[in-house]
């Protein structure tokens, strides 16, 4: 309970600053309108108007919450206006991409740890791959795959996988190398095979690293999915809501979709956190 107070204070400060910013950023529009109409606005009127604009530069927190509420609870879940519908579409792609990315990262990490040649050759490419902005590569992947007939979920999931394999790769290379000299010598004295050393020593040692990487990876997969949704015709997904919002200047819609994405990311990371606690506890590693 003692932890809740600082969190609430920070939240409150953010909300206050946000309202201040909304007032400041939207005031110009209100003054402009008033000037055209030849009227004067008092401070009370100004506050009221800046907080209720249909297309504000910066929507006030209650407007975003309203948009979020309407998107989640105010629509049928099959409606194109429902954030649940779009969130679900994004989640589907994210999970597929995350699974593919995690698997790829895992396999590459195992290869890198066991083969010097792979260590020398794969790692530089993996690092180089992450220096290319995903925003630049996503449309090309979508277009190229569409030209060979691959559309829909899979191209988007590939972009998500492209972003999420990297943290898993880096974390697992570190994790699989976590066993110390003594533990590796011990396995040698038993004449354990490489596979046995991997399954009985390296993989269990790497688990704490794996979970840390998964949390970064799943967030990256979500970002990848949303970016991939933008050039994919922007029909479904939170990326689509962001894009259509920006076409029509629907700032409230944009912010609501952003918050939906943030909530989704928080839920995914929390789910991995719970899995981590359960697994480490069952392994006797949590005290």
């Amino acid at each position: 309970m003692r932890n809740i107070l600082p969190v609430l204070v920070v939240c409150l400060v953010i909300v206050v600053l946000w309202y201040g910013a909304a007032l400041w950023l939207n005031a110009a529009w209100v003054y402009d309108q008033a000037a055209r109409a030849g009227t004067q606005v008092g401070f009370g009127q100004l506050v009221h108007d800046t907080m209720t604009l249909p297309r504000p530069k910066l929507p006030a927190p209650h407007q975003v919450l309203g948009g979020l509420w309407d998107g989640i609870f105010g629509q049928s879940v099959t409606s194109k206006k429902s954030l649940v519908y779009h969130g679900w579409m994004t989640l589907e792609v994210t999970m597929l991409g995350f699974a593919v990315g995690t698997l790829a990262g895992l396999i590459l990490a195992i290869g890198i740890v066991h083969s010097r040649a792979m260590d020398m050759s794969v790692m530089p490419w993996a690092i180089a791959s992450q220096t290319i902005p995903v925003l630049a590569i996503a449309p090309m992947v979508i277009v190229v795959l569409a030209s060979v007939g691959l559309k829909g979920v899979i191209p988007k999931a590939l972009i998500a996988a492209y972003l999420s394999f990297f943290p898993v790769l880096v974390g697992m290379v570190k994790g699989l190398r976590a066993p110390d000299g003594l533990q590796l010598d011990l396995m040698r004295t038993y004449n354990a095979s490489r596979t046995q050393t991997l399954t009985m020593l390296r993989l269990p040692s790497s688990l704490p690293y794996l979970f840390a990487s998964l949390k970064v990876g799943v967030a990256a997969a979500l970002v990848g999915t949303i970016v991939a949704e933008l050039p994919a015709g922007a029909s479904v997904g939170l990326g689509a809501r962001l894009l259509s919002g920006s076409y029509y200047g629907q700032t409230i819609q944009i912010w609501a979709a952003l918050f939906m994405a943030a909530i989704l990311a928080a839920l995914l990371v929390a789910a991995i956190g719970i899995a981590e606690k359960v697994v480490l506890k069952r392994m006797g590693m949590a005290r």
């Binding site: 003594l182 011990l186 004449n191």
Partner: peptide
């Protein structure tokens, strides 16, 4: 002899795997 598992080795530290009982 190592491959034939001829010896048991006890190290300076116990080196028990923390995830195993």
């Amino acid at each position: 002899a190592r491959k034939a598992r001829s010896y048991g080795y006890v190290f300076q530290a116990a080196g028990l795997f923390p995830w195993r009982t």
